[in-house]
């Protein structure tokens, strides 16, 4: 079952823990048995038949499939079961009855489009400013300093090749050569979530927003992307699925809200997302921006 904010009866378990203040669980987490997939400083990813659940440090914020827990609990066990409202990590049971459930859905646009467009322009300027040099925005559209850093011979050969390939792919996408471009971009980048896949996830989110806010029909394009860029990596699969469903993290919701608010909020929201991972956040935002501003990428 999918978690909702509806109250559930507590399950009496010996030694049951009450979640700490600020504890939050995403609304796309389903009951099931999960085993450890990967563990990092601030996150532990568990995989099961229902999909992926991430136990994360509160500093990462809420997401559709995240549960905020401190490091001791995140590292307590290599397996986990969720039978709402009970979360069991090894021999530790946590009562989820009263937790805050994060609503990951994207809100419909309530303002006139004219009010949003100037903020998209602000987003366009903020992204290269806050993106790390070694990231898609840093490479294809950053300042001259960004570009010189990413293209220097001392920058890793693999990374230079990877970002050059992604930049070529993005230019093809801008020319509407979707399949060719996606083949270059998908899975391109060294780490757990390759930069190219982060870009695609951001683009899919952008296409959902374009449909919801601007009444654009992007279903064909979304279909081509899903078909051309499949991934066997469960974390990427989860990213793509949530993007297509229009489910986003707390920080992305804040950014979307800021696109209808004042300039300062856009800048701060972009800055916060750009701080995610080595380049994941910035690459994701590059994909999102690509939906609305292909010239930005094509002209570099």
């Amino acid at each position: 079952m999918v978690l909702t904010a509806t109250a559930h009866p507590s399950v009496p378990v010996a030694g049951l823990m009450t979640p700490p203040c600020g504890f939050c669980a995403g609304d796309r987490i389903a009951d099931g048995f999960y085993h450890l997939h990967s563990r990092f400083d601030r996150a532990a990813n568990f995989i099961g038949v229902p999909g992926l659940v991430c136990l994360v440090d509160a500093s990462l914020g809420a997401g559709p499939n995240t549960i905020t827990l401190d490091a001791a609990l995140r590292n307590a066990s290599d397996s986990m079961s969720i039978r709402f409202p009970l979360l069991t990590l090894g021999d530790i049971a946590i009562d989820l009855s009263d937790v805050d459930i994060f609503d990951s859905g994207i809100e419909p646009l309530t303002q006139a489009i004219d009010q949003v467009l100037p903020n998209i322009d602000r987003f366009r300027h903020a992204l290269p400013e806050h993106a790390p040099p070694i990231s898609i925005p840093g490479f294809v559209s950053g300042t001259s300093r960004h570009r010189s850093v990413a293209r220097r011979p001392s920058c890793e050969t693999f990374l230079s090749s990877a970002f050059t390939r992604i930049a070529s792919g993005i230019r093809m996408l801008a020319d509407d050569r979707l399949v060719e471009g996606l083949k270059l971009i998908a899975g391109c980048g060294p780490g757990l979530t390759p930069s190219g896949d982060d870009f695609i996830a951001g683009w899919l989110t952008g296409l959902h927003v374009a449909t919801l806010w601007f009444d654009r029909d992007e279903s064909d394009r979304i279909g081509v992307i899903r078909q051309t860029a499949p991934s066997a990596n469960p974390i990427v699969q989860s990213q793509f699925r949530f993007a297509v469903e229009g489910r986003v993290t707390e920080s992305m919701k804040t950014l979307l809200a800021s696109l209808t608010a004042d300039e300062g909020m856009v800048d701060r929201s972009v800055q916060r997302i750009c701080g995610r991972g080595a380049s994941s956040g910035a690459d994701y935002l590059a994909g999102f921006l690509f939906t609305f501003d292909q010239e930005f990428f094509a002209c570099h």
Binding site: T157, F158, S161, R165, A186, C188, P190, P194
Partner: peptide, 12 residues
């Protein structure tokens, strides 16, 4: 190089 084994990375 240490990279995940996606097709793109193998090409590079």
């Amino acid at each position: 190089s240490l990279v995940m084994g996606t097709r793109s990375n193998r090409d590079i």
